[in-house]
């Protein structure tokens, strides 16, 4: 006597939205983050590259260009969505239970808030 489930016993998950962001973020992290870590935080600091690489004028003019703004926003925002999604599911994996509604606010809401901050700061840097 099996009580077999039918399609009506299952409801559509909304996971595809965050999965799309997670996947896009995964691509961004894979192709850009290693080079960025080297550029911003290792090559200059260990003496391989010149300090001038991180000079204010240079970085500011990059962040003032429209393509610079787009790059910075895309990299930070998508990296955030990718990593919060992984951290969220990672918590499940180690049996730390957070109610779904709270998780959505903390993780995806948080990533959205942080991305909005990036957007605002990019505007503040001007053209």
């Amino acid at each position: 006597m099996t009580i077999r489930k039918t399609a009506s016993d299952y409801s559509r998950s909304h996971e595809p939205i965050v999965w799309g962001l997670f996947s896009a973020g995964g691509v961004i992290v894979a192709f850009f983050i290693p080079a960025l870590i080297l550029l911003t935080s290792l090559l200059v600091q260990v003496g391989i590259a010149d300090e001038a690489v991180l000079s204010f004028d240079r970085v500011q003019s990059f962040a003032q260009a429209w393509w610079g703004k787009l790059f910075i926003l895309a990299v930070i925002a998508l990296s955030l969505y990718h990593t919060v999604h992984r951290i969220h599911h990672g918590l499940h994996d180690v049996h730390i239970h957070i109610p779904d509604s709270l998780a959505i606010i903390i993780f995806y809401g948080g990533a959205t808030v942080l991305s909005c901050l990036v957007f605002v700061w990019l505007l503040a840097i001007g053209w």
């Binding site: 399609a7 299952y10 409801s11 559509r12 998950s13 595809p16 599911h89 994996d93």
Partner: peptide, 17 residues
């Protein structure tokens, strides 16, 4: 069409990490 609701569910593909 008859099988996609099973994939679409949380208990479908979306439980997989």
């Amino acid at each position: 069409k008859e099988r996609i609701p099973f994939l679409n569910a949380e208990e479908g593909v979306w439980s997989c990490t």
